[in-house]
């Protein structure tokens, strides 16, 4: 099963490599990993998507918690959550028909065209992974020039604070 693990990590050199090293050393699977500083500059937020049998994911959580740099860890799959990923996609659009169609598709998916040249559009789209997959699927593969995905970030729904230092 797929798990989204949200981690507050000491914002220190080497912290990221400890997490990444743990996954490679123990043979765990990482689907995506994003990391950025938080409102508290001493902390980073890492969101990690992994999958595996329950026993393996249980070990992943425990081994992550064992890392001294991990301040707090929550598995967002344990509650209601919102997950988002950003897609930047560059597509070939060099004739009128193509350009109209891509613009329409981008609108349907609530994407935005953020860069335009005579022969290409760059589109920004956010959503869960399935939505991004669906958008990519409706564009003809020959038109796709480049795809950049951010990896998943997530947050608990409602007033629940899943993972904060003081929580």
């Amino acid at each position: 099963m797929r798990h989204i693990i949200s981690i507050l990590l000491e914002n220190e050199a080497g912290a990221l490599s400890r997490v990444a090293g743990l996954f490679s050393a123990r043979g765990y699977n990482i689907e995506s990993l994003t990391v950025a500083p938080t409102e508290d500059p001493t902390l980073s937020r890492m969101t990690l998507v992994t999958s595996g049998p329950e026993a393996v994911v249980d070990q992943i959580r425990k081994q992550l918690n064992k890392l001294v740099d991990v301040v707090k860890l929550v598995d967002l799959m344990e509650g209601q959550r919102i997950e988002r990923e950003m897609l930047l996609i560059k597509v070939r659009a060099d004739n009128g028909g193509e350009r109209d169609e891509i613009k329409r598709l981008a609108d349907i998916f609530r994407g935005r065209i953020i860069d335009v040249t005579e022969s290409a559009y760059t589109i920004e789209l956010t959503g869960d992974g399935g939505k991004l997959d669906a958008f990519i699927a409706v564009i003809h593969p020959r038109r796709i020039l480049e795809v950049v995905r951010s990896g998943v970030i997530g947050i608990a729904r409602g007033e629940e604070i899943a993972c904060r230092l003081s929580a």
Partner: peptide
Amino acid sequence: AIGITRPCVKHSFM
């Protein structure tokens, strides 16, 4: 040294 020892330490500091 931190990188080489990372998989076999409880923790390390630079």
